[in-house]
């Protein structure tokens, strides 16, 4: 099956310290990401804050032009498609349902905005499909004329999902859609997303730092570190047998419900490297418990593992790399 989204060498850098008389520095938020997303998949993207997850999401949505590399939507370069064409196929659900809904609009008007922008149907038809969509995400139509401030976080996130799906897109990019919600509401929203995927054959890119959530929803997981994908594998395989030391540390950092155990030790330390000045070689080597000499000089390529690919000289050596 061909890829719905195909990204090659995707990179995005930002100029930091912009001003008339200040020196400019470059921050590489995303640095050479290759990713294929197939129809019907749920690709989970995990990593610490600042690893470039959200920048990647914005590029896939076409909100942010990549500074290098290409994104293809079913073989067509995203840059050659206009915003409207992309928006019919790819839609976002954002993290914070408090800032993702315009506080001055009523719920129905928020959900109907994409229909309005694309000039779909008459006002009455738009109203009808908006109400249907709200009903589908579990909001009775009496909410339609309320303002976002009158709704709870979970209800707001349902509105955001309704807005994303009202145009019947194929791909939904969820940027931490549950991390601003209470735990009890999180599972409701996740189950809603899974139901909608089944009903409508949706493809998700699911960004999260919550590994339990990703394990629950994703079919494939990409682990990002400092703007790069360091390991990508089928969900079950990745959780059973993580290859990259960073993936292992992430899995070890999941809090257990056992109160006596305290916060688990990841062995990583707190020294998240300065993304303005990344370390040479493997970007993870300063925090890696297994680092060897070559890690400090040479960037490891993504090499095949049992369940997918990983970039590590030690645990996923490329063919002939150790011998050299």
């Amino acid at each position: 099956m061909s890829a719905l989204i195909r990204a090659r060498g995707l990179a995005r850098s930002f100029a930091v310290g912009q001003g008339m008389f200040r020196p400019r520095r470059t921050l590489h938020a995303v640095n050479g990401v290759d990713i294929d997303i197939k129809k019907g998949e749920v690709v989970g993207i995990v990593g610490e804050s600042g690893c470039g997850k959200s920048t990647l999401a914005r590029m896939l949505l076409g909100l942010l032009p990549p500074s290098a590399g290409t994104i293809e939507l079913e073989g067509k370069d995203l840059r050659t498609l206009d915003r409207q064409a992309v928006s019919r196929r790819v839609q976002p659900v954002f993290q914070d349902p408090y800032s993702s809904l315009n506080p001055r609009r009523r719920i129905a008007s928020i959900v109907a905005l994409p229909l309005e922008v694309h000039g779909i149907g008459s006002a009455a038809e738009r109203r009808r499909s908006t109400l249907e969509m709200l009903e589908r995400v579990g909001l009775p139509s009496r909410f339609a004329d309320h303002y976002p401030r009158e709704l709870s976080g979970g209800q707001r996130q349902r509105v955001a999902i309704a807005r994303a799906l009202v145009m019947r897109p194929e791909i939904v990019i969820c940027d931490e859609p549950t991390s601003a919600l209470d735990v009890s509401v999180q599972s409701q929203i996740l189950n809603l997303l899974l139901e909608l995927r089944r009903d409508r054959g949706l493809t998700y890119v699911f960004i999260s730092h919550n590994l339990a959530v990703v394990e629950h929803i994703a079919t494939r997981v990409a682990v990002m570190y400092l703007g790069r994908v360091v390991e990508m594998a089928e969900t079950a395989g990745l959780f059973r047998d993580p290859r990259h030391p960073y993936t292992r540390a992430l899995l070890a950092s999941v809090l257990t419900p056992e109160p006596g155990l305290g916060i688990p030790d990841t062995g990583l330390g707190l020294a998240f490297p300065d993304p303005l000045n990344p370390p040479p070689g493997c970007p993870f080597h300063p925090r890696c418990p297994d680092a060897i000499g070559i890690c400090r000089v040479q960037m490891p390529p993504l090499a095949p593992t049992l369940a997918g690919v990983a970039a590590c000289h030690v645990h996923a050596p490329a063919q002939g790399a150790l011998a050299a």
Partner: peptide
């Protein structure tokens, strides 16, 4: 920088529509 502006952009809204319909009222 708020997400509802990004959502309107992702919905394909024109810049004029976003500035006058989403930013200005707020």
């Amino acid at each position: 920088s708020l997400d509802y502006v990004a959502a309107a952009e992702a919905a394909g809204a024109s810049t004029a529509r976003i500035v006058l319909g989403e930013v200005l009222p707020n």
